[in-house]
Design a protein around this nucleic acid. Structure first.
Length: 280
DNA sequence: CCAAGGCCTGAATG
DNA sequence: ACATTCAGGCCTT
């Protein structure tokens, strides 16, 4: 019973959700918006800003969630093997920029780009005798030139980043109100931001806006579905159009239930580890 | 509505 | 060495 409340910090951080994290001794340190978190092996958090943050979503009833998503053998095995893997609750703006940067890229490069962005535009702080750069505020990224952003190695995504920052700073899209909105409403808003399509939107919604039915469908997840769920969701086409993405998402929620996003995280972790993909 | 092609960049592949 | 391909998509045509 109590077993389920264990958090596997290592697995949770190394599952493609966050990028600005590094391990130093027994602690993990990571930038989360205007805050830096220090985490021990039990998931106990110390915050630079002294903020209380439910980074590991301890408020979710993980017992119920695990039961809910365990609808087939594949998920049950992944849940067992990666016991303690959690969805992380990130600061939304950093999450947004992170996943705009992630598109058509890979973890190593995403990490480098985001580090560059933080170093160049973020505030330098010291926490436990270590130096960190906070993630820049939307206001800052909205004001700097596209060329300066481009120098961080983000390529054509530079203009998306600036425009996205603008939209957030102006509150044309407002994260706080979106946290209360339903999946489809949030999806519509997120996809209105340049550089944000269905997949990126689902990442932001799952990892920072509490939309646990969001199920990001990237190349890996498509492969996973083709490999293990051929009968449940037969995928015919190579390219996933908007319409097909939505149809597939509906089938997915029918199969995995309202916490489908958790199932996605376990499946993703499982398959990436099988292929020995590197994380942070 | 769908399919195809282009796009920054750097690590991996040939 | 050097050229191509490919990588956790999105946007335009």
């Amino acid at each position: 019973m109590q077993e389920n409340y264990v958090i596997n910090v290592e697995n949770s951080i190394n599952s493609g959700q966050v990028f600005l994290w590094k391990k130093n001794g027994v602690f993990w340190y990571g930038v989360n918006g205007q805050d830096v978190l220090r985490i021990d092996k039990n998931g106990i958090i110390k915050s630079y800003q002294n903020l209380k943050t439910d980074f590991f979503r301890k408020n979710d009833d993980i017992d119920i969630i695990i039961k809910s998503i365990s609808r087939d053998k594949i998920v049950r095995n992944a849940v067992k093997k990666y016991h303690g893997l959690r969805i992380l609750k990130q600061e939304p703006f950093q999450c947004l920029i992170s996943f705009i940067v992630s598109s058509n890229s890979n973890i190593q490069k995403i990490k480098t780009s985001l580090e560059n962005i933080s170093r160049k535009f973020g505030t330098k702080i010291e926490f436990e005798n270590q130096k960190f750069f906070l993630f820049p505020k939307s206001e800052k990224l909205a004001k700097v030139s596209i060329n300066e952003i481009r120098k961080c190695g983000v390529g054509y995504r530079a203009e998306f980043i600036k425009e996205a920052a603008n939209i957030i700073f102006s509150k044309e899209v407002d994260f706080e109100s979106l946290k209360k909105s339903n999946y489809f409403e949030v999806k519509k808003n997120m996809c209105s931001i340049p550089g944000v399509g269905n997949k990126v939107a689902d990442c932001i919604m799952l990892f920072s806006l509490n939309k646990l039915e969001a199920f990001p469908l990237d190349r890996w997840m498509i492969r996973i579905l083709e490999k293990y769920y051929f009968n449940e969701f037969h995928l015919e086409t190579k390219t996933i159009t908007e319409k097909q993405y939505n149809i597939l998402h509906e089938k997915i929620v029918n199969h995995f239930g309202p916490y489908a996003g958790y199932a996605q995280q376990f499946l993703f972790k499982m398959e990436r580890e099988n292929y020995q993909k590197k994380w942070l």
